[in-house]
Simulated assay, not measured.
Amino acid sequence: MIIGIVAVSFSSIFIKWSAAPASVQGMYRLLFTSLLMLPFARPYSGAAFALRKKDWFMLGLSGTMLALHFLLWMGSLKYTSVASSTMIMALEPVFIMLGAYFLYKERTALSALLGMAIAIGGVLFIGWGDVGVSADNLKGDLLSIGGTAAVAVHMLIGQKLVVRMPSYLYSLIVFLSAVIVFAVYNFFMGVPFFNYPARDWGIFVLLAVVPTVFGHILFNWLLQYVSATTVSMNILGEPVGASILAYLLLGEQLSALQWAGGVLVMFGLAVYLYGGRKKAAKASATLQNVS
């Protein structure tokens, strides 16, 4: 878990270090990750042939949402600080909860709703603090909110698909779908595919290996040994780790309002995750009593 949190915390730093467009960084990050995954995909070929047309459509939609997430969130780092962007990104569970309520009518504990309200209040503090810095910072905050909404849709689609197919196969197909979306976007927007210095190519590889393989894929592997709630606590660790790294490696400073907003976001998310854990434990106990 610690290795995973440190790994994903480096994602924002690598993005800041590269001068390449966000759409190019996202495309090569997922392309190189897919190439690393392909040699281990053969055992899942049978499951791939068994997919229905509807499954392929939903996989493509999930990949599109993932590409949109990277486009908006990586783009936000061109305008605002690492701390502000990652603290807003930490609202992903809240967006997922809202989506699950409207799409699947899933109920949420009152304590989780309270945590959501506190976290949203923290985002407003961050935005207000960024207004005092520059209009560009606020633009970056809005892009990060859009990226968070997109990844929430991506996760909600995945929640329904992984019950019918191996998670490894799901990840690989979605990554490749997102690469195609990025390639089409870059082609029509006239974004160069290859004209980048060696430093940027090195960063593309680092984005694939460090935050993706040793971060997100490692978290998926951890689900075999610890609960999903425990793994989801990395949501709280990434903004803290990224902010520390941004201070040490990029010299970024935060205003008092931004710090206050960040503390509110982290506290709100802790309340939200605690409420979700209590609800899950209660549901488990009810099932055991029935059986």
Rank of each mutant, 00 (worst) to 15 (best):
V265N: 05
T230E: 13
A83K: 00
D130A: 09
F14N: 04
P93V: 01
R107W: 08
V133L: 12
A198W: 14
L66C: 08
T229L: 13
P43N: 02
V226P: 08
T80Y: 09
V162N: 09
S23I: 03
L113N: 07
L249S: 06
L61N: 02
F219S: 06
G261V: 08
V226Q: 12
L91G: 07
V6Q: 08
P39Y: 11
L207G: 03
Y170L: 02
V210H: 11
A270D: 03
A150I: 07
T80F: 14
L110H: 08
F32E: 05
I120K: 06
V131Q: 14
H216C: 09
S45F: 15
I126V: 13
T80V: 10
D55W: 14
T108F: 15
R52Q: 12
I203F: 06
F95T: 05
G268W: 01
I88H: 02
L110A: 07
P93E: 04
S232Y: 03
S171G: 04
L169N: 00
I3K: 05
P192I: 12
V210P: 07
S9R: 10
A20G: 01
W17H: 02
A135R: 14
I120W: 12
A50V: 04
L124A: 15
R107D: 07
H69L: 02
L236H: 08
M1V: 03
M1K: 00
V265Q: 09
G132C: 07
L143Q: 06
F125W: 15
A150Q: 02
F70K: 01
K78L: 09
I173D: 04
Y272F: 15
E252L: 10
Y104A: 10
T229K: 15
V24Y: 04
A47G: 10
E92C: 06
A119W: 03
A149H: 04
A281P: 07
D200Q: 11
G268R: 00
F32I: 11
I120A: 10
L138F: 14
S12P: 13
L223Q: 10
S11H: 03
A135K: 15
S144H: 01
S11M: 13
